[in-house]
Every structure is written in C-alpha cells, then in structure tokens.
Simulated assay, not measured.
Amino acid sequence: MTSPPDPAEFRRVVGRFATGITVVTAVADGVDHAMTMNAFTSVSLDPLLVLFCVEKKARFHKVVLDAGTWAVSILGEGSEAASSWFATRGRRWEDQLEGWATHRGEVTGVPVLAEAIGALECRTHSVHDAGDHTVVIGEVLSAGSPSEADPLLYYQGAYRTLRSE
C-alpha cells in the first residue's frame, strides 16, 4: 500500500486547476461578514443549488452556518483587491465591507459586491463535514449580473484573467 501524497505536492497539483473567485457574504447579529472563496460550484438545476467549502477554523465558518442565508459575488477581472482583502486572515471583525461598494440583495438583505459580475442569494440547504472544511450547499433564491467583465481566475497560486499569458 502506498502512502498518501505529500500535502505540498497535493496543493501544487490541484493548483493546476483554474478556478473562478467569489466572495461569500452573510449577516450575523446585524454585522456584515465576507470571505473569499474559490471552492465554489453549481450543483443542480432542479432544484437550483450551489456549494462552497469553508475552512472550519475560519471565523466566517460559524457566521455563515448560523446565518442561514448568504450571497455569492462572482468576481471579475480588476477585482484582485477585493479578493485579497476578503481572504486576509485576522482582518478587523466589524465593518469588513467598509470602503467596498455593495447593495443589499432584494431577497435576503445580504450584501452583494457592486463590482460582481454575477450574484446569487442563497439559503442553506444542507451542510456536510469534509475533513478540515465544511461543504455548504445552498438553494439559489435569486440570480443576477450586476456588472460586465471577464472573470477573475486563480491558477497556480496567482490571479489570472482569460487573456493571461
């Protein structure tokens, strides 16, 4: 029996899979919270379902599980600053979205980034344990395209666009 791959090698190999970048937002106790996610995908058309994976030790983990509703802002090229900010560990707990243009989702009231090229409002459908992460599956309550741009991508540890060389 062979041993499992080294975690660093695993990370290098899966880094070869290009992903889009999202910011997931939720509201807890009247406070807006957000976190960058690239582990996001559509799941089902009937019913409409999406999922994201959140690290259990992240502060956002408890927030999004307790909130029950959340929004996904799909980032476009030029949104590297937003992606980096909402991925920063230990950033201030209050006013995380201060300085970022947002609007409230019409269905959930959860903030959506104005610069998003796609936006989804969701209600938690199910939650699944997955090692050091939790898989959160959401029922899509609304969908829209707030702005137009090519997507922001993440590949081999760096931001890319469709025109990257």
Rank of each mutant, 00 (worst) to 15 (best):
T2P: 15
S3D: 15
P5V: 14
D6K: 02
D6V: 10
P7T: 10
A8F: 05
R11Y: 06
G15W: 08
F17V: 08
T19W: 13
T19G: 03
T19L: 07
T22M: 06
V24K: 06
A26C: 07
A28K: 14
V31Q: 10
D32G: 04
A34W: 10
A34H: 05
M35D: 03
T36A: 13
T36M: 05
M37L: 15
M37I: 15
T41D: 13
S42A: 07
S44Q: 00
L45F: 11
L45P: 01
L51E: 00
V54E: 12
R59S: 15
R59Q: 15
V63P: 03
L65I: 10
D66K: 14
A67P: 03
A67C: 15
T69Y: 02
T69W: 00
T69I: 08
A71W: 01
L75P: 04
G76A: 12
G76E: 05
G78K: 03
W85C: 12
A87I: 07
A87L: 05
T88L: 08
R89N: 15
E94P: 03
E94D: 14
D95F: 06
W100H: 14
H103S: 10
E106R: 14
G109T: 04
G109D: 08
G109E: 09
V110L: 04
P111I: 01
L113R: 12
A114S: 15
A114R: 12
E115I: 04
I117M: 10
G118F: 05
A119E: 11
E121C: 06
H128P: 02
H128K: 09
D129A: 08
D129I: 02
A130E: 12
H133G: 13
V135P: 03
I137T: 12
I137Q: 12
L141G: 00
L141E: 00
P146G: 09
S147L: 09
Y155W: 14
Q156R: 13
A158P: 05
T161G: 15
R163V: 08
R163T: 15
E165C: 04
